[in-house]
């Protein structure tokens, strides 16, 4: 399970970083989203991976999972969601204002023209 999870986090991060470095705002936003998925999984794993263990005190349980990372992930998801929503709106506004979806606001020369 550890190997699988770390592979997933690694692939998501790599994809996120690659997309972040693209020139168009759409891929940049996708990159940000992938990075935030990666970091959410990472935070979740920082409390160690325990299967079928309750996070709160239960007399029947002999093993617990750490509840704090779950609270952190919840906060991070909410903030990430709000930020993604905001950046999508901002990118749309930039596209309308600048007539270009390049991150630096300048269009690349179109090879077809």
């Amino acid at each position: 399970m550890e190997v699988l999870l770390s592979l997933i986090i690694g692939v998501l991060t790599a994809g996120g970083v690659y997309l972040l470095l693209r020139p168009r705002t759409f891929s940049v936003i996708l990159g940000l989203a992938l990075l935030s998925y990666a970091v959410n999984l990472f935070l979740f794993a920082s409390g160690r991976l325990a299967l079928q263990a309750p996070p709160i005190i239960d007399p029947a349980a002999n093993q617990y999972t750490d509840p704090l990372p779950q609270a952190l992930v919840l906060t991070a998801i909410v903030i990430g969601f709000a930020m993604t929503g905001f950046v999508v709106m901002l990118a749309l506004k930039a596209y309308a204002k600048l007539n270009s979806d390049q991150v630096d606001g300048r269009d690349l020369p179109d090879p077809k023209r």
């Binding site: 972040l20 705002t25 940049v28 940000l32 990075l35 935030s36 970091v39 990472f42 935070l43 794993a45 920082s46 990372p69 952190l72 991070a76 903030i79 930020m83 905001f86 950046v87 901002l90 990118a91 506004k93 930039a94 204002k97 600048l98 991150v103 630096d104 606001g105």
Partner: peptide, 24 residues
């Protein structure tokens, strides 16, 4: 708007790094 978009993106990357650091 152009400056705002760049400012937002760079700071969102910073926030992600912050979470990675805090998680570690």
């Amino acid at each position: 708007v152009r400056a705002g978009l760049q400012f937002t993106v760079i700071n969102l990357v910073g926030s992600t790094l912050f979470l990675f650091a805090a998680g570690t």
